[in-house]
Design a protein around this nucleic acid. Structure first.
Lengths: 272, 272
DNA sequence: TGCGACTCCTTACGGCGTAAAGTAACGTCC
DNA sequence: GGACGTTACTTTACGCCGTAAGGAGTCGCA
């Protein structure tokens, strides 16, 4: 995992909010910069999106911009701060508002779905630790959006804060599951089913008494055996079939969100 | 973040389940091994617990055992597999059973609390990616325990699987928040309140129109202002005061779990 | 015209994971 | 009992990483 919010808070904060106070159109001495904070952040995000966090190095970012790694240090204090900037930059993709006419439940469902897709689009964001949040403008905006939605539930402020602390991690966790499913599918040439079959075959060979040692797990598997529908008929629209593991992860997300919303509903009812 | 499950599955699996099939008491030629997989895993876990994941390197593990880094490679294929082993080894601390007399709700609450403490004890576990789970014996045992508890709700198998996929990430997320709060407290000399005050002061200076741009956030803060009770009277028992951020994180955990359990309750009622 | 500020490059250091090859201890068999 | 093959561990080295230090070239302004 990578940590954020490590550097000098003042420097990081002013970089994060730099759009608010654009550099005073300086035309001082020295050569014209051929690099900019925005270009650096964009290149870094592109690398992380395409090749994953492991491939993100200062040299890689420099290469992508046709510069050396050290050239970046003129514009950005270090890798940790660059990560903060990347983190906030992508959060600009989060939705900002919802029509409230459909009710809080529909709005929250839509919100959660969009945030899930956001994380799936940028899975490396899930690897940025939340310790000491470096709240930049776009992350604040995302928080503001959720809070505005939650206000419609009519619950008191203290409860709302706790709901934020529950909903965001829940969506993050679900996105992690989806992203993991995709990574697994991409890494192994085999399909999800094949991979899983090979895995459990090896396991059964190594642990013959599996069923006795883990009765609840194997009981569940046996019970679900019949329930696992085979691949559904291909969508006539021609959409690609979603692999098994990812479909499962998304279904877990949908169901978990339902449980959470039911819980919120219960809190509302209990309060009136 | 660090990835698990990268290596050869066969080799990793047999290492993970090695206790089941102990090495056939070989007394072949060659010097007696002065290192063992267990010793290596224990040393690695100790380093991760004490100094964090960043400090975990093959050289560090070797040093702690009085050997070189390369000596480890005789016993363990590589760092990635060592991580798998560490991950499963600590999961042995997870509780295995609960008395069901108190009802599923009490049992689930107790379970969640113990798992939370487990993660807080070994925060580096939260940094091990869940991609392609390397299910070792102890993690399976933890899963089995939760499933056995959930069975008491009487919900169908499919729902149970989704609940597992919701509950585990929820506890992980909550533990992350608690661990982050502790890290923040440890890293900065200042108290939570001071750190937060400095942060928001700098923010307010940089972003004077904060309240207008993020109405929901600042509205919530204003509303909660009066509600934040000052430090409660010191516990007469002499227990140390839990810092603000961590108290907040734990409260969010408690409340979020309540919401989830309410949701489960609703599912039960709706089904009967 | 030259000074000073500024961007970017080169070089270098100490870390990392681990491949390759060498050394020494031990059980086994002639 | 001595040679041999197997095994545990060390040494050395390679190519990565983040970044400190210092040098080279480019520009605005005095």
């Amino acid at each position: 995992m990578v940590f954020a919010g490590q550097g000098d808070p003042r420097r990081t904060l002013s970089l994060l909010w730099r759009a608010e106070a654009p550099p005073p159109a300086r035309t001082g001495p020295g050569p014209k910069p051929r690099l900019s904070v925005d270009a650096i952040v964009a290149a870094a995000v592109a690398i992380a999106d395409e090749e994953g966090m492991d491939a993100l190095s200062m040299r890689a970012v420099g290469d992508r911009l046709g510069r050396t790694a050290m050239a970046l240090y003129t514009h950005v204090p270090g890798k940790s701060e660059l990560l903060d900037l990347m983190y906030d930059a992508v959060h600009a993709e989060l939705p900002r508002s919802y029509q409230e006419s459909a009710g809080w439940r529909a709005a929250l469902t839509a919100w959660a779905g969009e945030v899930l897709e956001f994380y799936v689009r940028h899975p490396w964001v899930l690897q940025v630790s939340q310790a000491r949040p470096v709240l930049g403008p776009h992350e604040y905006a995302g928080l503001d959006t959720l809070l505005a939605l939650l206000r419609a539930t009519g619950l008191p402020a203290g409860t709302l804060r706790r709901l934020v602390g529950t909903l965001f991690p829940f969506v993050r966790g679900s996105a992690q599951a989806v992203a993991d499913a995709r990574r697994a599918a991409a890494a192994t040439g085999s399909s999800d089913e094949e991979w899983w079959a090979a895995r459990s075959a090896a396991l059964l060979e190594l642990v013959p008494d599996f069923a006795e040692r883990f009765p609840a797990v194997s009981g569940l598997e046996a019970e679900a055996e019949g329930a696992v529908e085979p691949y559904p008929d291909e969508d006539p629209g021609g959409a690609e079939a979603v692999p098994y593991l990812e479909r499962e992860a998304r279904e877990t997300f949908r169901a978990g969100l339902g449980v959470l919303l039911d819980g919120i509903e219960a809190a509302r009812v209990g309060r009136t």
